[in-house]
Design a binder for these strands. Sequence first.
DNA 1: ATTAATATCAGTATAAATACCCATTCTTAT
DNA 2: ATAAGAATGGGTATTTATACTGATATTAAT
Lengths: 221, 221
Amino acid sequence: METTTRNITVCIAEDQLIFRQGLANILHTFDRIEVVYLAENGLELLQRLEDQVADIAIVDFRMPILNGIETTRQIRERFPATKVLILSMYSEDEFVKSAIENGANGYLSKDDDPEEIAKAIYSIIETGYYLNDRTSKLLIASLMKKGGMKPTFSELKDQLTDSEKVVLRMICEEFTTQEIADKVFKSKRTVETIRTNLLQKTGAKNIAGLVMYAIKNEIIT
Amino acid sequence: METTTRNITVCIAEDQLIFRQGLANILHTFDRIEVVYLAENGLELLQRLEDQVADIAIVDFRMPILNGIETTRQIRERFPATKVLILSMYSEDEFVKSAIENGANGYLSKDDDPEEIAKAIYSIIETGYYLNDRTSKLLIASLMKKGGMKPTFSELKDQLTDSEKVVLRMICEEFTTQEIADKVFKSKRTVETIRTNLLQKTGAKNIAGLVMYAIKNEIIT
DNA sequence: ATTAATATCAGTATAAATACCCATTCTTAT
DNA sequence: ATAAGAATGGGTATTTATACTGATATTAAT
């Protein structure tokens, strides 16, 4: 049966099948929310949007093929009527800032309750955005960071060259520069250059930062 | 209506509400599988088991309060009739080995399809265990590692002292030893000792390994 | 064919991490 | 009270990481 007020159409892009399906089932139980389709990654979502636009796109931050930020950017460009709610495993100020800068209308953690997500959906429909206390704090924290020319997290994954990705993975596997050089048949100096480029591109200060970047952006799994 | 064959009672310990609820809903749709209760962490699950034992406990590897391995060990000890299926975000050979060694009857990835999980449940009920190709390979890889006295992943989290946890977190935040020393008002030498102990306890080879350990075991979030 | 960009490799220098040795203090268990 | 163990701090040496400057080779673009 149809109600007088139109339902809110929601689509979801999320690579974990169980989470994706679970989120859809739960959202269905909320009033006026209608989950119209699910996608495994950003690219698939964009293709589905071609056929049927939705009011809200719930987009996982970390996805294969096309990540959450890139997906958000393209949705904003090609489907301006669709509002984007980012879900992320990690609550990093840089992540929140990057999401908002690229046109996301809200940012929540995957640990949050479904009620919180439903609340965000209603709020985005009504006011155009939703930020709770935690994400607001993170956003402000990020904006207050001086010298904000640090490269935005997670937008660089696809800009990393194959060599850089290989070296990054091996760094995460606890290999030293010399060991990596031997394995990839390159000079130690070359690997050092690649590592330096990685530091510069990701904005990391050292090896620890590189590993954090790699995990949070799913360079490694 | 009751069927002649008794249902398989399943309980779940998983901290992410949406994943937990989603998994329960999906498993309900499979034949003979009855999800009897859900818990947010291992401790809660053990308390629920006191009241009502279940045939299968699906246990997340990485949980607050009581992690998957520790939970498995206690289930094996106190509720030997309950079989344990571990779900993990990460497919590390060390993780699989550790799970099996502590009495888990199966190990799956959170990326796996619900069908795979249902299949594992049926198999565990019938044969007492379930390992698919991927986990079998990981298990064998782990067993074949020479010098296997590397401390088992994820069992040490609670054995890390407060100081060690603080230092580990700061390492992940890209601070150098000197910087950490200044912040915690200890000598650089002391912080170095703590770091050395961390390397020894976690079995990591270097900073990269420490960061990997911290993330995968939820020392940091 | 020439230019521009990128990948590769090198020298040098400093800072940080890692690996051993060991001493002192402080807490805790008996 | 005392012994054991943990926390703190130190010396020294080696390896690794990081920071510069810069050269050569390879590739891509025009």
